[in-house]
Amino acid sequence: MATHQPDYFVPQPSKWPLVGAFALFFIGLGASLAVNAVSAGWGALAVGVAILIYMLFGWFGDVIRESEGGVYSKRVDISFRWGMGWFIFSEVMFFAAFFGTLFYVRTISVPELGNMEHKLLWPDFRAMWPNSVAPNGTEPYQVMGAFGLPAWNTLILLTSGVTLTWAHWGLMKNNRSQLKLGLLVTVLLGALFLGLQMYEYAHAWGDLGLTLSSGVYGATFYMMTGFHGMHVFIGALMLAVMYARSLKGHFTAEHHFAFEAAAWYWHFVDVVWLILFVFVYWL
């Protein structure tokens, strides 16, 4: 006899929010001490990260067991979808702030600093983007070209979106082999993207002289591409968990929101990179 599925699942009291609070406390304390050159800061930061990893495995593990146990109703599924949708919206606003900063610098700040009034203060300043000389005028650097590693990374991310969609089709057709292979290839492509980005950073820093101190161009370049790289890492980690779950037989054509949530996040990361490629590397 089938068990009755409640309209809304109410979990038992959980320790995980408290554990997460301790993790954030140690991370905040450790980061504050570390940036002020206090040696204990790195230890506190490591403790905070370790507690956070423990919380993530424990909390998501509980959710996975509840999901596989069949206690989630359609209403819970809808709430999960709304939650993931709002989370991705917050990420959209996160990157919108960075693109807004880039727009302000390129179209307002740099032209303003190059007018006749400011020429009296900075006679050698050239109102062009990107400038090829750091603010002190003694540290020349080269800008990162678009049609090299960045173009290859764009192709890699676009391909990963295709392989992930192919994996989703396999799931909907109950083709487990296609699901697993598509997920595995997507995760490997994400790792390849991160590897090439690390190589790109080493090339930019060592060969092109492009550092965080290379004026506003260097600051915005590393800020925007670095945060995107962090999101690629998180997305690849999420998809790796989906791959591990698929090996255990999780997900069906009717019940696979965790897979969909990770796929939404990955496609969002892909779209952000396309915009980054155009406005940071190309134009």
Rank of each mutant, 00 (worst) to 15 (best):
H4K: 15
M84V: 12
V133N: 05
F89V: 14
Y265G: 09
T138P: 05
A40L: 12
F221R: 01
L283M: 14
N153A: 04
Y141T: 05
A127G: 10
A127W: 05
K248S: 03
P130L: 01
W205R: 13
L276A: 00
L121M: 15
F22N: 05
W264F: 12
A204H: 03
E260W: 06
F259Q: 01
S214G: 04
L184I: 06
N36Q: 11
N174P: 01
L194C: 11
S14F: 07
G137D: 10
M55P: 00
F57G: 07
V272G: 01
L192C: 10
F9N: 04
W273Q: 02
I27T: 08
L183V: 06
W59C: 04
V19D: 06
L56E: 11
F57K: 15
Y281D: 00
L212K: 08
L183T: 00
W264H: 10
S213F: 09
A240W: 05
A240H: 04
A261D: 09
M198G: 10
L45Y: 08
F80L: 10
G30T: 06
V35E: 10
I78W: 12
I275H: 06
W152V: 13
A244L: 13
S79C: 07
V133T: 05
V272E: 02
A23N: 10
W152T: 13
V92S: 05
A31P: 01
